[in-house]
Design a protein around this nucleic acid. Structure first.
Lengths: 132, 132
DNA sequence: CTCCATCGTTTACACACGTAATCGACTACG
DNA sequence: CGTAGTCGATTACGTGTGTAAACGATGGAG
């Protein structure tokens, strides 16, 4: 049984940007069938239904989604927590660009004026909590 | 002059991860010739010299590097500031994962215990400065 | 002045990704 | 019971990326 190229896929398999858009929809609401996902994601990205189906299939292969049969169709649900994904992605960036240190990232955002007053207030609150 | 596929390349062209490793070396020290870059980057990544040459060439095409002739070889220097790259990449992530808001990213890092005491202290100091 | 080492350039190739059409099966309506 | 619509699966294809060999020019050693 000569494994086809895509046949093997570890759970750690990387989720691409387009795939992420699909995950985002399902993290917001699940389970959904392909059409529902398409309706939501196509509105934002302008993809066609076949495209969304491909992405769903690839995500299932990568074990990022799980499926349940519902009559003739499938219902898709996330098989990984959004916080996990967000966590590893954030960590990736911090490692790659800031040597694993979070402070320089913060400095970067501050300098780029990417921090709103609300952000600053929230971060301040978080800091207070961390120190307690 | 039928433009070859790669012939056109805007300055905004995206820098891939492998290319970024090369940029990193040149941001640390420049200008350098291909061999010097290779010596540094190959130690960390285990690439061969041809590979590094390809990456350098692609980066020149993307206008992320500039070159000066030095006898028979080229000296490569970054044509974009590291802070610019780091800025856009950070922004990208924050936009994609946190709806453009920095506070949730911070919360994420805090929750993942990715914040050292030093980080917290530095961020606190930055906050104080921002509010003044 | 010739030849070799060394550049940068060109070409190569497999795989991931974005995007999509087509196909075969199955369900539901008539 | 047949047929049309719909679903997931299969196949497709161009481009970017990671990785590298082959090639052609050129400058420096002898």
């Amino acid at each position: 049984m000569a494994a086809t190229p895509q046949a093997n896929a570890q759970p750690g398999e990387r989720i691409s940007e387009a795939e992420h858009a699909v995950m985002e929809v399902l993290w917001e609401e699940a389970p959904l069938c392909a059409q529902d996902v398409c309706a939501k994601v196509c509105a934002a990205r302008g993809w066609s239904l076949p495209t969304v189906k491909t992405l769903l299939a690839r995500l299932v292969t990568k074990q990022a989604l799980s499926t349940t049969r519902d009559g003739k169709r499938f219902l898709y649900s996330p098989a990984m927590a959004r916080s996990d994904y967000v966590g590893t992605e954030s960590r990736r960036l911090v490692d790659r660009l800031f040597g694993g240190r979070a402070a320089p990232l913060f400095a970067q955002l501050a300098q780029a004026e990417a921090l709103s007053d609300t952000d600053i207030a929230e971060i301040e609150a978080l800091l207070k909590e961390l120190k307690s």
